[in-house]
Computed example of a mutant assay.
Amino acid sequence: MTVTKSSLTKVMHERKSVRKYDENFKIPQQQLEELLVEATSAPSSSNLQPWRFLVIQDEAVKKELRAIANNQEQVETSSAIIAVLGDTKMYENAEAIYTKNFELGYINEATKDLMINNSINLYSQLPQEVLKNIVTFDAGLISMQIMLLAKDMGYDTVPMGGFNKEAFAQRFELADHIVPVILIAIGKAAAPAYNSSRIELEHIAKFI
């Protein structure tokens, strides 16, 4: 049987981590907004959607950020930097989220009340380190969607975990419950990314 690759598979394989960008190319803010809206279809723990975004387009601010991000060139030359953050107080939005689900007819009232109570009671009691792990995981899920959607729109990206998170939080005056997770450079490639190999499935997967 011949298996035809889907458009999603094509985008997945065409997405590469690009580090050289056309610094004169700027993505319209409306498209960046559309990208983030689409990306929020990602799943999250108890659907609490803890991701927050700081989209940095200003050239002077990007130059400052480059120093915080280990002098990575793409921080300054890409069209924008999408900082993906995690809110460890995401459970405070449980009522609004599940009430909206109820109003849209996705759940009944009993389920709404149950999910609100369960979410608040569970997450509000968790240690900060556990909450950080949860929001970091969820930020990873939406970050991958951002990069795939960007490629589908004709743009290139590279994720960056190597930056001074404490300095970032201080520079952008983040509240204590907002955790910097990853920076994503987005723009038009000025040079192709390197290809990279993958470990064979037999070494990373076991079927039982």
Rank of each mutant, 00 (worst) to 15 (best):
K10P: 06
E76L: 14
F53Q: 00
G154A: 01
D176N: 14
I146C: 09
L183F: 03
L104Q: 07
I56F: 04
Y21Q: 04
I184H: 07
F102S: 00
E33F: 15
N133H: 13
L36A: 11
S196P: 01
L36I: 14
I182S: 05
I204N: 09
M153N: 12
K151F: 11
K206F: 15
L65S: 00
N47F: 08
I134S: 09
A39W: 06
P28L: 04
E95G: 00
E34V: 10
K100H: 12
D156Q: 03
M144H: 05
V84E: 04
M153F: 10
D113E: 12
K62G: 02
L122H: 06
E73Q: 10
E38Q: 07
E103M: 09
S196I: 06
A42R: 09
A96V: 10
D152R: 08
N117I: 00
V61N: 03
S46M: 07
K188Y: 03
N108P: 03
L148A: 15
S45T: 13
A139I: 09
E173A: 15
T9R: 03
K100Q: 13
Q30F: 05
Q125K: 13
A83D: 11
L48V: 08
Y106E: 11
N108I: 07
I116H: 01
D22N: 13
N47S: 07
A193M: 05
M90N: 04
S6E: 02
L131F: 05
E95V: 03
I82T: 06
A167D: 05
P192N: 12
N71D: 13
V181H: 08
L35G: 08
E92Y: 02
N101V: 05
K10C: 13
V84C: 04
L65Q: 00
A96P: 05
E129S: 14
N121S: 11
Q31M: 13
K63I: 00
Q57I: 13
E103F: 06
V130P: 03
T111M: 13
I142V: 12
L148N: 06
A169D: 09
A110S: 15
M1Q: 05
F25D: 10
I27R: 00
I186V: 14
F25W: 07
I97T: 15
P28T: 04
S143E: 09
S44W: 01
A205H: 03
A67R: 06
Y98A: 09
D156T: 03
E129M: 07
R52T: 12
L104N: 04
L183Y: 02
T88K: 09
L141F: 12
H203M: 03
E129P: 01
A83F: 06
A80Y: 03
E33H: 14
M153Q: 09
I204M: 06
Y21M: 00
T77E: 06
K100F: 11
V61C: 10
E59I: 12
D152A: 14
D156Y: 05
I107L: 06
G105S: 09
V75A: 02
N70L: 15
K5S: 10
E109L: 02
H177F: 15
E95F: 01
K16N: 11
E173F: 13
N133I: 06
